[in-house]
Design a binder for these strands. Sequence first.
DNA 1: CTGAATCCAAAAGGATACTG
DNA 2: CAGTATCCTTTTGGATTCAG
Lengths: 129, 129
Amino acid sequence: MAISETGGDAGIDIVYRSDCPSRPILDQIADKWSMMVMAVLDKPTRFNEIKRRLEGVTQRVLTQTLRRLERNGMVVRRVLPTSPVGVEYSLTPLGESLREPFGRLYDWTVNHADEIRAHQMDYDQRVQS
Amino acid sequence: MAISETGGDAGIDIVYRSDCPSRPILDQIADKWSMMVMAVLDKPTRFNEIKRRLEGVTQRVLTQTLRRLERNGMVVRRVLPTSPVGVEYSLTPLGESLREPFGRLYDWTVNHADEIRAHQMDYDQRVQS
DNA sequence: CTGAATCCAAAAGGATACTG
DNA sequence: CAGTATCCTTTTGGATTCAG
């Protein structure tokens, strides 16, 4: 049985193997900030605009996240011919195509956040920490 | 515009806020090992069986991952009345419901792994490291 | 068999200061 | 404005040992 019943033709039988090509990729994209940055980038956006909308992210972490996304071909970085310099980030078609599965995960998270928090409280009470 | 065009009714307009309830949840579930453990758990599975199928995971990390998943109500831990003791992990309905969005992400990853690696090689060549 | 405990190295991440 | 560089604290993760 594949992990997904949605018709994916992925080689799900090998994702468990340490040499599965999806592992390093998963490491790169399945993190919180990458997901949030891509959520913000529904249109070309300036660096500080992204930073402002992503409350809590530091400049350093945002830069690193954007670099990694750029390296993976998910976003493009474009320097604007202004003064002072402006930089605009936008999703590539590859990045766009990731928004759908990401959106699924986001929706699930938001829809189940309460239920999960209830479980956590229950667990923390049963297991004295 | 919502991040997902698939009809999710999530409050996507607030996921960027630092007090968005989905943030801590996302931190908990959007990591590589959680995803892989849940991929393995299509049926009740013993600790060592999980460890064996997840090449490369250490005992410590697997234990931590399972604890977190248990705390979040995604898996249940059941001690088997055997000798020596056996422990069996299985998905809860909540955990089951997460497999679909996870599966989407997995499928996307596998299907685009080559393309991403090509981008990485191109980037690494352009940007001398 | 299934962990918990410990030690230690590496990586991640915040704060701050500086620059083209 | 959009970073880079540095320092330093926290977190993570591997390896190993011990125990119910």
